[in-house]
């Protein structure tokens, strides 16, 4: 298309909002539909929002590229993929055991640290990306072929986990062997003993039936990652909108943050119950040794990213 930035003669704008999950029953979808609802209602149709559920990219990297070039206007991205754009600071939020509860997480991302992070993203990307709010993809737990009673039980277990450096290092230190398996192949991999275990949040792995496989039916609530997702808009495009349109978008984003989190929290309980009903075994574990192991890694990673001050703040807010 030409460079009209998506605005037509009468000043109305069209916003392409996209996430990477194809399942209709996903908190992302609830969040973006809320965004659409509020933006369209508040603007009396002056803003049109088109929601794409995986249709213009099931890879986050693709959505980030589209956000930059203008193929999408509002997208959802995880810290791991933001680091790919050269903004390494955001990976702070993906460090293992950084948060100890949703309350802690919300206090951090909705407070001063969240604001600082938003500034870093905006500055380092030259205004390509502007943060509209923090969503979550749930809290991640271990699930595998045996329940964990202590960290020693991880020794020698292969585990499907993210390929991001610090996370991989952390699991290596616990004794597990991080293994790369595509998400779409994981069900089979767990079923056929290609990997011994994996880690993810209830709504994600229960929807894929991983909890019904031999190597996925023991869930230990390690709670190692209260995940953060960035709701982003293209900053340059945002600046080209009228003041009124900007305010409406911010308001819609705020409503979407609330809707997404509510939906996720609700699904987390529902899918945990479903896992139990389907015969999976859930147990809790003393997280303290895991937390202790994570601390030096967090220190080192934060230092490398140059955000030791933010790490300290996050720890103080517990």
């Amino acid at each position: 298309g030409d460079k009209s930035e998506g605005s037509s003669g009468d000043g109305s704008i069209k916003i392409v909002a996209a996430h990477n999950q194809t399942s209709p029953e996903n908190p992302y979808q609830d969040g973006l539909l809320k965004f659409k609802e509020v933006a369209e209602a508040e603007s009396d149709g002056n803003i049109k929002v088109e929601v794409h559920a995986g249709t213009i990219g099931t890879e986050e990297s693709e959505l980030v590229e589209k956000l930059k070039t203008g193929g999408a206007d509002v997208v959802l991205v995880s810290p791991g993929f933001m680091t790919q754009t050269g903004i390494k600071e955001v990976n702070l939020l993906a460090l293992p055991y950084l948060f100890d509860s949703y309350e802690h997480w919300e206090k951090v991302v909705d407070g001063e640290v969240g604001d600082k992070m938003a500034n870093i993203i905006n500055e380092k990307s030259n205004n390509d990306f502007k943060l509209l709010g923090y969503w979550t993809a749930g809290v991640r737990h271990y699930y595998g072929k045996k329940p964990l009673q202590s960290m020693e039980d991880l020794e020698g277990l292969t585990m499907r986990t993210q390929t991001s450096g610090v996370v991989a290092n952390y699991w290596k230190q616990t004794g597990a062997i991080p293994t790369s398996v595509a998400w779409g192949e994981l069900y089979q991999a767990l079923q056929q003993d290609v990997v011994d275990s994996a880690e993810n949040a209830y709504p994600y792995f229960v929807q894929q039936n991983h909890h019904t496989t031999d190597n996925g039916k023991y869930i230990t609530e390690t709670g190692h990652d209260y995940t953060t997702r960035f709701l982003l808009v293209n900053g340059n495009k945002f600046d080209s909108y009228t003041k009124e349109q900007q305010e409406i978008i911010l308001k819609a984003a705020e409503a979407s943050v609330k809707a997404e989190r509510e939906s996720l929290y609700k699904q987390e309980e529902e899918y945990k119950q479903k896992a139990i009903d389907d015969g999976a075994k859930v147990n809790e574990i003393d997280r303290q040794p895991f937390i202790e192991l994570a601390k030096p890694l967090q220190d080192k990673a934060a230092k490398e990213m140059g955000v030791t001050d933010l790490l300290e703040k996050i720890r103080e807010m517990k």
Partner: peptide, 19 residues
Amino acid sequence: EVVEGFWSYNWVALPQLKM
């Protein structure tokens, strides 16, 4: 245009390499 826009993005597993 794409090369220019995304030259400095990193690979995921080998961040020292550029996209």
